[in-house]
Design a protein around this nucleic acid. Structure first.
Lengths: 232, 232
DNA sequence: CGGACTTTTGAAGTAATTCAAGGGGAGTGG
DNA sequence: CCACTCCCCTTGAATTACTTCAAAAGTCCG
């Protein structure tokens, strides 16, 4: 990918949207590129914040792990999204880890550079405010779901959200465009892989979804939506 | 409260910290003051975003309500904190409601004015980035707790967090400085008021807490911390 | 002192976890 | 190319933590 198309790419990201071309060029010159193979760790929970990345190609999984090894998936990050927000928001250490789910291309900057850019260009800082506001809102919604809904409904919401953000239309329905195990779904919905497996089996029988090994296709999204909305 | 002390107060808030005095004066001139009695609604879920407030005196409860009337408490807001972040982050509507728990004094600005100030002064925008980053992180931690911990541990974490942010040393221990019902604790911990009541009764017997009607005193915080950290 | 709200506690019910075992794909190495 | 191995997934049975249902007792306020 050449510098020119990099600049265009940056202009479409949530963080740098709306920036004038000269500024995008400056930002592009200050960036470094990095690639990660599927399964590699991009950054590790507890490490001192050093780098902010933007995803160019591929997908990352943001997790938080407890002392006793239990994991929660905070979110998945796709092209154009900021990875390592803690370095942007002045956190001391990364609150979670970031793992490449696919083979990934990222562009990165040191925390100091990004913070300098935001300080000199308030429109970029405002983009960061909007982006963090949106993520905070997203977490509020998930917290509410986790507090008030039963597992089946939560799982439906989780899958619908994934289909929305990473869905690919196919002949058989909307396919979630990256590998996703039962365990992953459990860690996103606050349940166990056993319950996820049982629920998906039941849905498959009703023709709502079509699943394989680390693969989910939503065949009848309307039915799934009605499960997500029904009262307990 | 006169204008001079208002300016000093603003300089100590999370949003305006570090701003030069002339700017603080300008901000103070653009503000309006508003008081709410205990129980009054400051802003309502679903309304178009219009105002950003800062709490001067008192405490607000931020909630989210589902279609079928179930509530979740997102957080409590105390002096110096921003209320109505959605107006700051460019959201269309308020994602939750804000209720006065105490009698409250707030200062407010229209969303347009605040956004203009942030655009003209990137240091304020950076404060907003930090503040939203911190809230997002807080929600990540709570999401993880809700997903991986059993009720007793979650309740312990909830009470410890409240004691930290609104605790007042007394002869009998750390008292949470605003009225807080069993129902409120349930809505913060993702459980029912019955389970909260039972758990608190058990703790009271062990001398860990000392509770009354809408009142919690943490008598032995070390024991509570050990409950919060023990493996399930 | 009445009435509304908050809290407590028991008993029954249940959704989901935990425990346990086996089956099947995908990739690897011989 | 086949066999081996490592994951990942499935399904049943037992267990349990928590909710739900129900009723009564406190406590505050006008």
């Amino acid at each position: 990918m050449d510098d020119q198309s990099d600049v265009e790419m940056l202009g479409r990201t949530e963080l740098f949207r709306g920036a004038p071309v000269e500024l995008l060029r400056e930002i592009q010159r200050a960036a470094f590129r990095k690639r990660f193979a599927a399964g590699e760790t991009v950054l590790r929970q507890g490490d001192a914040t050093a780098t902010v990345y933007i995803v160019v190609i591929g997908r990352l999984r943001a997790t938080q792990t407890t002392l006793d090894g239990q994991q929660v998936i905070i979110r998945y990050l796709g092209p154009g999204e900021v990875a390592g927000y803690a370095a942007l928001a002045g956190g001391e250490t990364y609150p979670g880890s970031l793992i490449a789910v696919d083979d990934c291309h990222l562009v990165g900057w040191s925390a100091a550079i990004i913070q300098d850019i935001m300080t000199r260009h308030s429109s970029i800082a405002m983009n960061a405010v909007r982006l963090l506001g949106a993520r905070y809102l997203d977490m509020q919604v998930r917290l509410r779901e986790l507090s008030t809904e039963k597992v089946e409904r939560r799982l439906a919401h989780t899958i619908l959200r994934l289909a929305q953000q990473a869905g690919r239309r196919t002949a058989r329905g909307i396919e979630i465009a990256f590998p996703l195990s039962r365990q992953d779904l459990a860690e996103m919905s606050g349940t166990t892989l056993h319950t996820v497996s049982r629920t998906l089996s039941a849905w498959e029988e009703r023709g709502i979804v079509d699943c394989g090994r680390r693969r989910i296709i939503v065949a009848r999204s309307q039915l799934l939506e009605s499960i997500a909305e029904e009262q307990d």
